[in-house]
Write a protein that binds this DNA or RNA. Structure first.
Lengths: 142, 142
DNA sequence: GGTCGTTTTATACTGATTCTCATTCGATAA
DNA sequence: TTATCGAATGAGAATCAGTATAAAACGACC
């Protein structure tokens, strides 16, 4: 799904963001490349369309998009920020060793039980679950 | 529970680690202070007993303890490493905003369903689950 | 006491991210 | 259109966590 300028304009308006060329290209770069991406990755992709863009601009806009919910921050177990554009409910499978992240779907959480265990005031409005284990590759390495 | 030299000696022997004074003090500092700690925190605590200790030594030993399972690495959503000494099965509640981590107990995961969803080869031997949401404080800030 | 492998220390270095500030852009009013 | 003003951008310096390196200290063993 290719984003038209119109679609981005609408999204931006909904979240009170000014529309700039850089902003749009950064956003499209994340959406176009499915998966979990580092700011550097996105910077590289965006530079193909705007060679003069600054890394700081990419960071600024990623933070902005995360803050207003246009993008999700993925666990930076890799010690560097990762973002994803997939806002549909899903969970993450994270390798404790190599820190790789895979999406996982499915209904394996008992939210009733979970909410009974929650400390007062904790808000699970958009729950994101991360399950840690060893990915196939790291397991093979023993 | 205060760790005696004897207890640490046994643990170290079990994991094939040499016993050094620094190593013992680092380990005790983590165990003594329950919760989730950054290397800097631990460094500060250890320096009260060994003023000349180097930060690198703290890092070295924390990595070592994590590698042999004496400590657990906590999600560095805070973008900096955290460790905990609590090895009993439990899960984490992480605030997406301020990155604080609380422990949570309870049996809200359906591991049968989960393992049906797992991609081949993913090893869930010591599953750790992290549930993201908004803590009371951040929620109050709206 | 001498030797060897391990650990510690001090410090330099790297890489990710943020900060600063001058410049440019974009929306709006004239 | 043109002028204006606040917001966004670009360039590069600064910061900060963590790692690498190399020399010194330690400790077990002969």
């Amino acid at each position: 799904m290719r984003f038209t300028h119109e679609q981005f304009r609408e999204l931006a308006a909904k979240h009170g963001l000014a529309v700039t060329h850089q902003r749009q290209v950064v956003y499209e770069a994340v959406i176009a490349s499915h998966g979990h991406h580092s700011p550097e990755n996105i910077y590289a992709a965006v530079r193909r369309r705007i060679p003069s863009i600054s890394l700081a601009t990419v960071y600024n806009n990623l933070r902005l998009f995360i803050a207003c919910g246009l993008l999700r921050e993925v666990t930076p177990h890799a010690s560097t920020l990762r973002v994803e554009g997939n806002l549909k409910p899903h969970h993450h499978l994270v390798c404790s060793r190599c820190k790789s992240v895979q999406d996982i779907e499915g209904d394996f959480i008992d939210f009733n039980r979970l909410s009974r265990q929650l400390p007062g005031g904790f808000d699970l409005a958009q729950p994101l679950i991360e399950v840690f284990g060893l990915c196939r590759r790291c397991r093979a390495k023993n």
